[in-house]
Design a protein around this nucleic acid. Sequence first.
DNA 1: GCCTCGCTACTCGGATATGAGGTGTCCGAGTTTTCCCGG
DNA 2: CCGGGAAAACTCGGACACCTCATATCCGAGTAGCGAGGC
Lengths: 160, 160
Amino acid sequence: MKMNEGVEWAMHSCVNLSWLPGEAVTAKRLAAFYDLPTAYLNKQLQALTRAGILSSTSGPKGGFQLARDPRNITLLDILTAIDGADDAFRCTQILKAGPGADPKADYREVCLVSQAMRAAELNYRRELAGQTIADIVTRVEAQSPAAPENTRTWFANLKS
Amino acid sequence: MKMNEGVEWAMHSCVNLSWLPGEAVTAKRLAAFYDLPTAYLNKQLQALTRAGILSSTSGPKGGFQLARDPRNITLLDILTAIDGADDAFRCTQILKAGPGADPKADYREVCLVSQAMRAAELNYRRELAGQTIADIVTRVEAQSPAAPENTRTWFANLKS
DNA sequence: GCCTCGCTACTCGGATATGAGGTGTCCGAGTTTTCCCGG
DNA sequence: CCGGGAAAACTCGGACACCTCATATCCGAGTAGCGAGGC
């Protein structure tokens, strides 16, 4: 059970983008900030764009920016965009192959093992849905108040 | 983020084994119950054995059985045995590559994105740790009281 | 001098390689049973 | 008839292929800006 590594990149990139509102930031610059492979980060940003989290513009002066208010972007939104919406636990309804099974029953609902696993995972997703990028940003600023300004000047001074 | 399919098999097999206490059940018979690939299920049962959840005996009349009371086997135990103990979210500490980073800091602890993800995952694991095989068995018996006896007779009548 | 057209440079976007890990299989180690032989 | 030993059968255990998906990369589509040429 390994989560896509791009989830971490996407979340940090969204935090950085929230400090650069209204500005189109290229994938290359976002990648340079954390020394990440540009093309691969670009792929993740594309996924965020498809999910409606970012908006993108092509050409010179192009790049990515947040498509909506950070208070309206949850960690679950990002996770789902990058890693897919499927549950980690996959109920294959093996009870259907067992003796005395009801072919018409949906064992994803009936099976109690499935219920327990899905309930736990649902809480997990619910907890991530309750945390927004704005929440993270607020906490980061409380921890290191200079972070927003430092980030802005870093991106402003970046030459290449 | 896909969980190992064997987790489902292992949990159902543990439920079945809890209805056959003190009896060594072979991997072949457990696999036949749900029409699963024998050798691959055997691999999963080996993992449960290494984790101390099952005990195994070789030779004729050999097989697997629960190594301890079902009330003392949590769903998290099984998940960890099959799928590994690593967290799904892997904090690679990308902040360390960013500007103004402290090389000595452990960003798995400091980074607020990492904190949020790990906290959610910790709750997930905690919830699974609070559910035992005995709990599942109790609920199954409440849902279909004939299940234990049916399972026992099925295993008793299995020829091959 | 100013407008327009075309070219260039730069960006995103998706199609394409590569590698690790989950999935599936096979053969050897070990143990119990059973059968045969000797007493 | 009884006991012992060897062989056979059956099981787990780990080592070995295969195949899917995450990882990584590259080239084409599209657009904004710039410059040259004409009015």
